[in-house]
């Protein structure tokens, strides 16, 4: 996208996405995470570090909030006033929700974060000037800023560790914002392969790194437009509609207990990640 194009089609890039006039035609990447299966093992987080060249910042910088875990496991304790919760912590893997109407996109002064045709919330490092407005406006706090030039000043990957960097992902320098990309490098390859064969990407053909390593298969990822995709079936089963900020199932009086929900959807961000609530003994 050139700057002329950005300026000429500004209103298009700022288009509110879940809309009748601009549906996703081929792809709409979405995810669902089953919190009942999640054991909080952090494998997804580790896989993300490996796949996306995330710097390990160390204990001190982590304490300052400078960590770069695009995929992080949040812990919630439901201890009802007791010192320790009977059933331990509840885990919630938190990553960029790839909102259809993303708060981060509207505040970027340089248009570095945009919505792609595939329904991804893209971050272009070259355009980013590091204003960090996007991070301030993100309700999920899943954007991470490069406060240091980790590869050089911090020597995050001392030789020969730089050899393990993923060549398909940029190594970010100082002063840019970064976040989960839904492993766009894998999506691009899958889309290209499918295009050569004159078809769309099949369900299960492409996996995100976190999904690939999840030992309990808690993460499902796929194309929401594809009627055969498992992720779409899950969304439908849970009656979660991408384009609604209030789900019809929650409004019903005699609501059937369905587990699917999206985090902070009342903010009208229209997130692309659906969570399946954990079933706890105390809740039954």
């Amino acid at each position: 996208m050139s700057i002329t194009n950005l300026l000429e089609n500004w209103s298009d890039f700022r288009h509110q996405h879940p809309s009748e006039d601009r549906p996703h035609l081929e792809y709409k990447w979405a995810m669902s995470i089953d919190l009942d299966s999640c054991t909080g093992c952090n494998a997804c987080s580790v896989a993300c570090y490996a796949e996306n060249n995330l710097p390990v910042v160390g204990k001190e910088k982590f304490a300052h909030g400078h960590s770069h875990h695009w995929m992080r496991i949040e812990r919630y304790w439901d201890n009802d006033g007791r010192e320790f919760a009977d059933q331990g912590a509840q885990f919630l893997p938190m990553l960029c929700q790839h909102c259809e109407s993303a708060p981060c996109e509207t505040v970027c002064p340089v248009g570095a974060t945009n919505h792609t045709a595939d329904g991804l919330n893209s971050q272009v490092y070259n355009r980013c000037v590091g204003s960090r407005y996007c991070n301030a406006n993100c309700p999920y706090k899943v954007r991470y800023f490069n406060w240091y030039d980790y590869p050089t000043t911090d020597n995050v990957w001392p030789a020969p560790m730089e050899q393990q960097l993923n060549p398909d992902v940029t190594v970010r320098g100082k002063g840019v914002m970064e976040k989960c990309t839904f492993c766009v490098q894998r999506l691009t390859v899958a889309k290209s392969d499918a295009r050569t064969e004159g078809r769309l990407v099949l369900d299960g053909e492409v996996q995100t790194a976190c999904q690939q390593v999840c030992p309990t298969g808690a993460i499902t990822f796929g194309n929401l437009v594809d009627p055969l995709a498992k992720v779409g079936k899950q969304w439908m089963q849970q009656q979660v509609d991408l384009n609604k900020d209030k789900q019809a199932k929650d409004a019903a009086e005699d609501a059937v207990k369905l587990r699917g929900y999206r985090i902070l959807e009342e903010l009208r961000t229209y997130p692309s990640v659906m969570y399946l609530e954990q079933l706890r003994e105390s809740a039954i």
């Binding site: 045709a117 595939d118 991804l120 893209s122 272009v124 398909d168 992902v169 766009v184 691009t188």
Partner: peptide, 9 residues
């Protein structure tokens, strides 16, 4: 394609 992430990684 007219999409940043098509060419930028």
């Amino acid at each position: 394609p007219n999409d940043c992430w098509q060419c930028h990684k």
